[in-house]
Amino acid sequence: MTVLLSVQGVTKRFGGLQALTKVTFDLPEGQILGLIGPNGAGKTTLFNAINGVYPPEEGHIIFRGQEVTRAKTYTMARMGLARTHQIVQPLNELTVLENVMVGACFGQENHSLSNAYGIAEEVLEFVGLGIRSEQLAASLNVAQKKRLEMARALASRPKLLLLDEVLAGLNSSEIGNMVETVKKIRERGITIIMIEHVMKAVMNVSDRILVLDYGQQIAEGTPEEISQNEKVIEAYLGDPKLAEKLLKEE
C-alpha cells in the first residue's frame, strides 16, 4: 500500500502554547483516519499544519512523495489536498454554484470554467444542495453551509480530504445523511482524515483512529483498540463508563 501522507514529528507552538508535539503518523492511500481528542487538543491545528495555514516549527510533512512542510495552502490544494473548515467559510456574495466552481477550477485538475460548471452541478446534487445552486451562499443555514464546504472540497477531486467536524451542530437525521455522504466519498477511493466528536460515527467509518490530547499523540490504532485504550478513556472522557455510553448512543 502506498503512503499518501506522512507526518513526521510535527511540532507547532503559538507563543508559549505547545499546540502540537511531535505528531507522527503515516496515512495509506484509500483509508479513513479518524482524528479525535478533547476541545483544544490541537486537531484543527494539525489540519492547519498539513495544509499550510500554519507551517510547523519542527518536523516534516510529506504528501504524495514530496516534502511539503512549508508549502502554501494553494500549492497543497493544487497537489490534491482539500479541506473543510470547522468554522464555515462560505464566499458569501457568490452563489452556491460559484462557490463550488471555485473548488473545481483551482483544485488539482485545474478545470476550465465550463467543465467546472458541470462538476459543480454534479457535486451539488451529490451532497444534496442541487436545488440551492442559484442562491447566494450567505443565505444558507449552517447545515447547508457545512455541505457547501464539503461540496467545494469534493469538486476539486482531491486525493486527500480533510474534514473538520462536519457533523458538529447537525441534528440526528442530518448526521445520518452526512455519514452516508462520507461513506460514498470513500467508495470513490478518496483518502480522508476526519475530525469528529460524534463517537459512534467516527468509530463506524474510520479504518484507524488517532487521538490527540494537549497536542500530544496519545494513541493510534483501530477503532476497537482505541475504544479499549485506558489512556484514551482517561484523557478523553475522564470517566470510563461515559465512554461506553457515548459509543452506544444513537
Partner: peptide
Amino acid sequence: SSKFGLGLLAIRENEDAAEVMGVIA
C-alpha cells in the same frame, strides 16, 4: 466572466479560503 475573474471574486469574499481552494492569490 472568466476563470481568472472567478478567482478574483473568491479572493474578494475570503482570501484565505480562496487560497485553501487553490487560488494563487
